[in-house]
Amino acid sequence: MEFVSFAWWTMAFRWLHVISGIMWIGHLWYFNFVQTPSMPKIPDEQKPAITKFIAPTALFWFRWGAMATIVTGLILAGMNGYLGSAIKLGIGDHNAHNTAIGFGMWLGTIMWFNVWFLIWPNQKKVLGIVPAQPDEKKRAGRIAGLASRTNTMLSIPMLYAMVGAGHYY
């Protein structure tokens, strides 16, 4: 057992990638399966517990989990030598693994983009971290909500591609 071998470091980056991914998708599913459906049932005077305390902390771990996942994922794909082939979905390479991981990487990248460029900037307006007029807040909430739902939908095929590439294709 060699702890400084390239194979060990590749395994270590895969482990960090999975840890980061759980941090990210765990919070994504918390927002979509727990927090958002619960908000209408919470009495108005108790809502600030979510909007002022829980949501900002959850969003912190959510967006940085997304960042750590894409960074460790790209390093991992580079170390494994399939980054280039996966980016072009393995087309022409007749390699089902690279096609599968490529789809997973593209889906994950779209989701990462949604987190940093749609969900987070709009959630800052919704939560009052940056000032916004009421109608602007409403619109921001709609965009952030739909981007979050889109990511929940995409997480299902994304995980098929990721796990499939590791264990089947």
């Binding site: 007749h94 096609t99 789809f103 739909l146 739902r149 929940t152 095929p157 499939g164």
Partner: peptide, 30 residues
């Protein structure tokens, strides 16, 4: 028309439908 992503249930169903599409795409390409 109502956006299917407004419903959590439809979102999950669409996720599984997209997975079937993905499986077919992987097999078609590879």
């Amino acid at each position: 028309m109502k956006n299917p992503l407004d419903s959590l249930q439809s979102t999950v169903v669409l996720g599984f439908v997209l997975t079937v599409v993905l499986i077919l795409l992987i097999h078609a390409i590879a």
